[in-house]
Write a protein that binds this DNA or RNA. Structure first.
Length: 533
RNA sequence: GGCCCCAUCGUCUAGGUAGGCCUAGGACACCGGGUUUUCAACCCGGCAACAGGGGUUCAAAUCCCCUUGGGGCUACCA
């Protein structure tokens, strides 16, 4: 019966790394019949966006990562932290400091020059409350630092075994900031104790924080939870997969192309000239919506990083959960495609591996294909509608019966976006069809317009049909192929381009049936007219 | 720079905690072939790895050390 938690800081959308951490914490809680708690670590006033926590929760829900308690907001628990800070101060285990950022920076620079770790020089006599007021009066910042003990701290990590730290390398660290908020370390340790967290599964980037947390727990007389530091997910360029990766790709694209109309880009992105300059110089990163808008304007694809990015690209939540669970973890055996329940059932935290892993998008695509195949029709339709809602598709709002038939006609599809792409032509007016240049050339114009000639034959054939049914249309096409001694492709492809504008669509007979004979003939005529000159 | 983590096919990984069952298994990708009304799906076949160097041992992918290479942290961010 493990009690675990996911403790994101609400600085933006939930991204892959966070989702993976959340998933493993959920897995362990479910496997043991325990509890999974959501805690929002919003102790940084400057970095919190008001909607971010909401977004993170939406993304978790979409993935099916549901929490049993919370969300608890640390910003609403100030008195609790204050109480413990006072206690530490009282016990002489923490002390006030009044250094300015500049002073601190100078000490750091000096340490670097001496090739040493930064260690804050603890004063012999700690400042008294009266000194605090004096410092404030002088306009100096007031923070509280924790006294690191001496000796060695050994972290018992479920994944990595014993990891030893010499406290001589660890500095007294800040537990309360100038604005009165606790730092992450303090709030995290207190909440883990108060919320009864007994197992902390988190990213390896926290391994170095763990001795600090243990020191705090010891000073406060808290229990020590079990720790498991999971490997980091890295992206193609090397380095931890980060939200900044999308901006990075955008920046590279802008720099690589001097032809870009920067004025227009600024307008589309909704930022200022100065901000764009700072972005290109690597000094500032625009917001997500701004990055997206600029990418769309430039017609470039950004790598999916945030969970919503994957939704927008047509991935299933089932896919993400399955794929993420197999990054740095393996249940053993050859089975890879699994549902959340199967993953929970087979979950064994001793089977984590220590190596960082690369996020392989091709394999993700393949997982998506498998999961699309696995879903029952009703669930898949629901997922498709969720996708359409965010995809800016003309198919949005179409009735379930139609959408259901479309989805069914696309079995074998790799993403939901692919289904939309193959069937959009059904939702356009005839005049709105965009003819893909390459497709037109290849199947209509090539070989002296043999495709166009075929269209004429098709039109005549369709007009002569005594009775128009799916069967009669199909028979006509097949008879025509036989008569001309051609594969069906020679007939279907020109027809496809005429009615959908490209060589890729849902199966041709389904396409005609769904479009209707009237529009089909109209589009054939329009195509003949348009490309005959 | 300091501290810490890691190292099996191109990628995700099995095997490593009880060394011989590993002439190293699976999946994705890739290559070749088949099927086909497009794309996809599907079927058959193929390529491909224990980072390097020392030990320990009758025996090492598995244990130890070093080198090299990757990664993380190094904030009044979390």
């Amino acid at each position: 019966m493990a009690v675990t938690r996911f403790a994101p800081s609400p600085t933006g959308y939930l991204h892959i790394g966070g989702a993976r951490t959340a998933l493993f914490d959920l897995l362990w809680a479910r496997k043991t019949g325990g509890k999974f708690i959501l805690r929002i670590e919003d102790t940084d006033q400057s970095r919190n966006s008001p909607t971010a926590a909401e977004q993170v929760m939406n993304d978790l829900k979409w993935l099916g990562i549901n929490w049993d308690a919370g969300p608890f907001y640390q910003s609403q628990r100030r008195e609790i932290y204050d109480k413990y800070i006072a206690q530490l101060l009282n016990d002489g285990k923490a002390y006030y400091c009044f250094d300015t950022p500049d002073e601190l920076g100078a000490i750091r620079a000096e340490c670097e020059r001496a090739k040493k770790n930064f260690i804050y020089a603890r004063p012999e006599n700690f400042p008294a409350e009266a000194d605090v007021e004096a410092a404030r009066a002088q306009g100096r910042p007031v923070v509280v630092r924790f006294c690191m003990p001496t000796g060695e701290i050994v972290v018992e990590d479920t994944i990595r075994g014993q990891v030893k730290f010499d406290c001589a390398n660890l500095s007294d660290f800040i537990i309360q900031k100038n604005d009165g908020f606790p730092t992450y370390h303090l709030a995290c340790v207190i909440d883990d104790e108060l919320m009864g967290i007994d197992c902390v599964i988190r990213g390896q980037e926290h391994l170095m924080n763990t001795p600090l947390h243990i020191a705090l727990q010891n000073a406060l007389g808290f229990k020590r939870p079990a720790y498991a530091h999971i490997s980091v997910t890295v992206s193609e360029g090397g380095g931890k997969m980060s939200k900044r990766d999308r901006a990075k790709v955008l920046k590279a694209a802008i720099k690589a192309n001097p032809e870009i109309d920067l004025e227009k880009l600024i307008e589309v992105g909704g930022l200022t000239n100065d901000k764009l300059k700072r972005f290109l110089k690597g000094k500032e990163v625009p917001d997500n919506p701004q990055v997206d808008a600029m990418a769309k304007f430039l017609g470039i694809e950004l790598p999916e990083i945030n969970i919503v990015d994957f939704l927008k690209s047509g991935y299933l939540p089932e896919t993400l959960v399955n794929f993420i669970a197999l990054l740095g973890y393996s249940p053993g055996g050859d089975k890879e495609i699994m549902t959340l329940d199967e993953i929970i059932e087979s979950f064994d935290p001793s089977r984590f591996n220590k190596t960082n892993s690369l996020f392989d998008r091709k394999k993700l695509l393949s997982f998506n294909t498998e999961h699309i195949k696995m879903l029952d029709a009703e669930t898949l339709l629901g997922r498709y509608k969720d996708y359409l809602a965010v995809a800016d598709s003309p198919a949005k709002g179409a009735d379930d019966a139609l959408l259901g038939r479309i989805v069914k006609s696309c079995d074998g599809a790799r993403t939901l976006a692919e289904i939309d792409k193959k069937s959009r032509f059904l939702f356009c007016d005839n005049e709105e069809i965009e003819y893909d240049e390459k497709s037109v050339k290849k199947v209509l114009l090539k070989n002296d317009g043999e495709g166009l000639a075929m269209l004429a034959l098709l039109k005549a054939g369709l007009n002569q049909l005594a009775e128009v049914t799916n069967e009669s249309v199909e028979k006509m096409l097949r008879d025509l192929a036989e008569e001309k001694q051609l594969g069906l492709g020679k007939i279907a492809q020109p027809l496809r381009v005429a009615i959908c504008g490209s060589t890729v669509s849902i199966p041709i007979f389904e396409a005609i049936d769904l479009l209707g004979l009237e529009k089909t003939i109209e589009r054939i005529e329009a195509a003949i007219k348009k490309f005959s000159s």
